[in-house]
Design a protein around this nucleic acid. Structure first.
Lengths: 345, 345
DNA sequence: CTGTTAGCGCGTTCAA
DNA sequence: TTGAACGCGCTAACAG
């Protein structure tokens, strides 16, 4: 059984030609019912399965998409991946997955590897420090479409899916402002991320529209490491203007900031109210979760990204030139942790 | 640039044969230095890259391994995957990843898809309810080696890497017994999992060797859902013999059990001391983590599994028959959460 | 309705 | 040191 049956083998045994067998198996209209039956019968007996390697080689497509993510251990990304996996499974696409671990160098290596593998298309959430996009631009020459999601480059000629972090931040800010907070700190992410820029804009707009003065010293940025967050938090706490609320780049940053604050005997969500992004499920079990977190719909983002990519791949087949870039932006929404049964502190 | 350069193209431009080009690029000894240089020069100019689809088709190998896991959102599995990814990247293998989401049906589908894709080998951690292993057995006929890790079937003719959960449980039990606990409950996992059976054995051995009577009513099993765990926990709490310690199948089960207990005003790690398995990093931020958790070394398991698979794939090439099954068992070790700075309750 | 032929890109004999 | 020929398994254009 080691040597799998081939179309030629079936053809020989049946004393017909390989192409007839091929057509029979594909239910081609011009094949006689009798022949079809015979072919299928034998194919079944021999346990025939098409050699996809041969087909893909011949068709010049791999029916494979590459997915590049920063970190699977972050629940946002594992959820997004699940969506991509499910969607592409339905379309009979397989997935090559690579983690950049937030390194631009690794990201480039993965892109190279995927290009060499001739993936049909790519779905990407960029590393936190990626500032140069040549490795993606280069793919255009090879006709490999790229769809970005969530962590998207701040350039215009790309396809993407993301969440509107500006309006999201506005929602978070309005909630805090309505609760009476006036001195609101922010630990933002790396400045090159579009999502960071949007958070900043949202922050500024909220302050100005209230209207309050925008104090730039209240907005710091973390490199998303524990140390980076602690440094930012330390700086914020040492300001003369004492913050009564803090917006953190995401739930992981919030966790680090909260722990840092607790170690300094700050009462979480009393002395300082915390709000963050990404609404990870684990927050439910966490000692002191932020009061609220902006839901960013990882599953939906993954689904949409796959959808767009599939569209692009179909267009490619029909040879019509790509006219425009697909851009989808979801509205995030503020999720409160009221469901928590356990109150701590 | 859409049409990539081929070996034939280079050959034509250089007025030599394709095979010469092929050999030149492979640094074959029998090619003249001059020809080699010319070929490489032009290959560089044309941005030639070998068409891996063609090569793999011709070599009858895909240089791809399939990885099947229950859930990427569990940190144990995302860590293990990272290891597999890193290791196989170094060996120039790509990875098809599929999540079973703990469904036996989905698992079978993925195996089918991977077989159709002709992966060279498979690394698998089985779904919690998988009791029938035919879909893996069947792969032997196709000469596709499978290496299991962590969640392994309880059958003998397989390759695997796992942690010794019997001795691990012994360690956990001895810790509890030394601390004075006599009535120790256990919420185990599904009984078909070998790891569950090992936990049970460890539990019994610890009790008997102490010596104490083994009370079967103290050991329940959860289907690993929140509801399943709560049901088990409810049953344990309603026993006449009141437990003072509990061993949970893993940190997620522990989280659910702990929350259930808190809702009933049980003081965690005072009224009941919790110990669990898998030592997930997030426990650090958790409201009431178990006192200790057995480290199961996901990264090492992933590494070892890949190593074994690579060995098998090399052997396959050299046509020597597989004589024995590779089995690696790591010793787990009890990790205490003393590093936690935050004490709750 | 079916067979013949050709070719996808590459590596690998065998011959020169 | 090089070239010609072949085949991997399949599909598709062309020819009956």
């Amino acid at each position: 059984m080691k040597n799998l049956a081939t179309i030629t083998e079936i053809a020989q045994k049946l004393q017909i030609s390989a192409s007839t067998v091929s057509r029979a198996l594909h239910d081609h209209h011009s094949i006689g019912l009798r022949t079809k039956m015979r072919v299928r019968q034998l194919a079944g007996e021999l346990n025939y399965e098409p050699n996809q390697a041969a087909i893909r080689f011949q068709q010049r497509r791999t029916a494979t998409i590459g997915v590049i993510l920063p970190e699977l251990s972050e629940s946002f990304f594992s959820a997004a991946f699940s969506a991509i996996e499910d969607s592409s499974f339905n379309c009979n696409y397989s997935i090559f997955l690579g983690q950049s671990h937030d390194s631009e160098v690794k990201e480039k290596q993965i892109v190279e590897a995927m290009k060499a593998r001739r993936v049909d298309g790519l779905i990407v959430s960029i590393a936190k420090n990626t500032t140069n996009y040549d490795h993606f631009e280069m793919l255009k020459k090879y006709d490999i479409p790229v769809v970005f999601f969530d962590r998207i480059p701040n350039i215009s000629d790309i396809h993407y899916v993301n969440c509107n972090m500006e309006s999201g931040t506005l929602k978070a800010m309005n909630f805090l402002l309505k609760s009476g907070h006036r001195i609101i700190g922010m630990i933002n992410g790396p400045e090159n991320l579009f999502a960071s820029q949007q958070r900043m804009e949202g922050y500024i707009k909220a302050m100005k529209s209230h209207p309050l003065k925008f104090d730039p010293s209240l907005v710091l940025s973390s490199d998303l490491t524990k140390e980076g967050t602690e440094k930012a938090m330390g700086q914020l706490l040492s300001l003369k203007r004492k913050i009564t609320a803090l917006i953190a780049f995401n739930d992981y940053v919030a966790l680090d900031a909260i722990q840092f604050a607790r170690e300094r005997n700050i009462r979480i969500n009393e002395d300082i109210t915390f709000v963050s992004y990404s609404n990870m499920p684990m927050s439910y079990h966490t000692a002191c979760p932020p009061v609220a977190s902006l839901e960013q719909f990882p599953y939906q983002q993954g689904e949409k990204a796959t959808e767009i990519l599939m569209e692009l791949l179909n267009k490619k087949e029909s040879e019509s030139p790509i006219v425009s870039y697909k851009k989808i932006t979801l509205e995030s929404h503020l999720a409160f942790h009221k469901s928590r049964l356990i109150t701590t502190v």
